[in-house]
Design a protein around this nucleic acid. Structure first.
Lengths: 339, 339
DNA sequence: ACTTGGCACTCGGTTGCGACGAGTGCCAGG
DNA sequence: CCTGGCACTCGTCGCAACCGAGTGCCAAGT
């Protein structure tokens, strides 16, 4: 059905179209690539590819452009990941070293990724639910007011102010601090509920009511409604080729402003260790049906912290994007694991 | 030179152009507004206005559009701030109540402002340098590693990890905590250097070296390089009228991605208590010469915390934008002051 | 059976041209 | 100082012709 040459033709079409953004015809294609056959043969192959739904015409007498299905085949079978140039590797290293805290790491990576791929880049902050508690600090802001600060092993810090129904003494706060500190230190978030389960019973009765309300907030902040965050950069790249999003720029920008949408993009991968590519209509997000999304997980043991990726036109350089996304994920993962 | 009727004509031109986005001609203008004079008279006035540089033609036989200078005059003398509708007031209140922490307040306000004005909204996080320290917490992460957490009265929290050359005991950390806590509590950031000046001398010699290095980091984080942050929302609104930014969308998006640029926008006001409007070429930022920027400071006593504003086409509804910006600033200021 | 050259056909893009009309500038008269 | 009239400008629209890249198909060649 699809012999090697037809695949080669498809690859050539994709490559030409990606670089020129113009429908590619049989003649120019036969010239530019050393296919060893005449344009007429290429035409026959093209007709076959079109029957199979891998390419299409914008109109009768125009060249071919790949369909989503065509890109899919290209990505899966015809392209190999483009290794980064030494210059790019250097760029990554110099960009990421010198970051002072987690915020800085994330902001730098997202800009870096946008710059490398010349697409819109998205980086998720290390997910709370997959990290471990390094420290829980309870600050006695006012007699009836506590600030809870949780520091995770990824460097992420969450804080929450808590109004108490009753007034607390510093001693009691110290007791609280001690009670929580001992149980939470080093606990994976998943184990937090279990670690805290017997806490009310074990505590001195005096502070029990306060303790439970603090516990509620802790569980809420860390387990029930863990706040996921993402950073984004490079939206200006969407305008690079005006042809890519003729009148569809609007919904894309709108989609990219929704944190929820971005998290969905990055989160809905089954296997976080490999790079995932969603092409055009494959995207579950309405406004991004005209784009492709390349994502991967990152973290010390692959994908445990969060995800990152790029969003661009379906007409993107997949090989390069996949390479960059993977490389940045690797560096960021190492960086955060080592911190 | 510019009698009342000419000003009225200018106002009419601005209003028509803002709502239709089409060059406005003498005839339609005379009809749509009850000017009480004939188109010919309007033409004469237009010619005068053009001589003065308030309006211009795109080409010889087209209607007039306002110049930056025309908008300037309009904003300064011809428009009154549009009061918010009750529905809008309700929207503001319901949007902002229920915010759980500072991050939440900022994120909600920026979205709110974008929604109200249908422009790009920018909100600066309360500036460190203008707030006071509520609490400084020193966490002993590891024998040679400290985490400094500073909580400001605006609810803003800054953290910084600090590697120590030597190993510290918990006792020593407690001493540090005590030494800093006493002096910093309630200090305005501006007074922090003075408050800490005599600290090394007063401290027990044993912890003196560590103390100075902690002091350095504190000063650096809070005073020397206070990190300013901004939130942005509504970039999709830039695409609302494709005509506004024919091929200039790119530089606008690029400018809006630069934190530095945004801070400059919001920060370079002399008097933070009143609403400022920068129109087109008045903008010092290169990429935003095709936009107008409406900004104001917010805070308990006007402008002490930070700034916020909107960015949109020069062809924007200034009266409404100014009103919304001012209203949101007021609410946010109150909210943060009360927290 | 596959490849190839030839050939008629399609159709979008470009160019040229004329009509149209919104809008202007100017002037003479009220 | 306002007004109506009038000639002029110029961008837009519609139309027709043309060009050319590209296609599909077929018959001949290997």
């Amino acid at each position: 059905m699809l012999d090697d040459r037809k695949l080669e033709v498809l690859r050539a079409i994709v490559e030409d179209f990606v670089s020129t953004n113009e429908p590619v015809g049989s003649k120019s294609l036969a010239e530019r690539h050393a296919l060893g056959v005449s344009p007429a043969t290429v035409r026959n192959d093209m007709a076959a590819l079109e029957d199979e739904g891998f390419i299409t015409h914008p109109h009768t007498s125009a060249g071919r452009i790949p369909t989503d299905k065509g890109y899919r085949l290209f990505v899966d079978r015809l392209s190999s990941v483009k290794p980064l140039s030494p210059a790019e590797r250097r760029a990554i290293e110099s960009f990421l070293t010198g970051a002072v805290d987690l915020d800085d790491v994330v902001r730098r990576s997202v800009r870096l990724l946008a710059q490398l791929t010349r697409q819109v880049a998205v980086v998720q902050y290390p997910s709370l639910s997959r990290s471990a508690v390094r420290h829980l600090e309870i600050v006695h802001l006012a007699p009836n007011r506590l600030l809870l600060v949780t520091i995770m092993d990824t460097g992420r810090v969450e804080q929450r102010v808590l109004e108490l129904p009753a007034v607390l003494s510093d001693d009691e706060v110290a007791q609280l601090r001690q009670a929580f500190g001992a149980r939470l230190h080093g606990a994976k978030l998943i184990d937090v509920p279990a670690a805290l389960a017997d806490l009310p019973d074990a505590a001195p009765p005096a502070i029990r009511p306060v303790l439970t309300s603090v516990m509620t907030v802790v569980l809420e902040t860390l387990v029930d409604q863990p706040e996921e965050r993402v950073a984004i950069a490079g939206t200006a790249n969407l305008t690079r080729s005006a042809l890519d999003f003729p009148n569809t720029l609007r919904p894309v920008l709108e989609a990219l402003e929704e944190q929820v949408v971005l998290l969905k993009l990055i989160g809905e991968v089954n296997d976080p260790t490999t790079v995932h590519v969603k092409i055009g209509e494959e995207n579950s997000v309405e406004g991004l049906r005209s784009t492709s999304v390349v994502t991967v997980g990152y973290g010390p043991e692959a994908g445990t912290y969060g995800g990152l990726g790029v969003v661009g036109p379906t007409r993107m350089d997949y090989a390069a994007s996949i390479g960059s996304v993977r490389a940045v994920a690797r560096y960021v993962g190492e960086l955060l694991a080592g911190a």
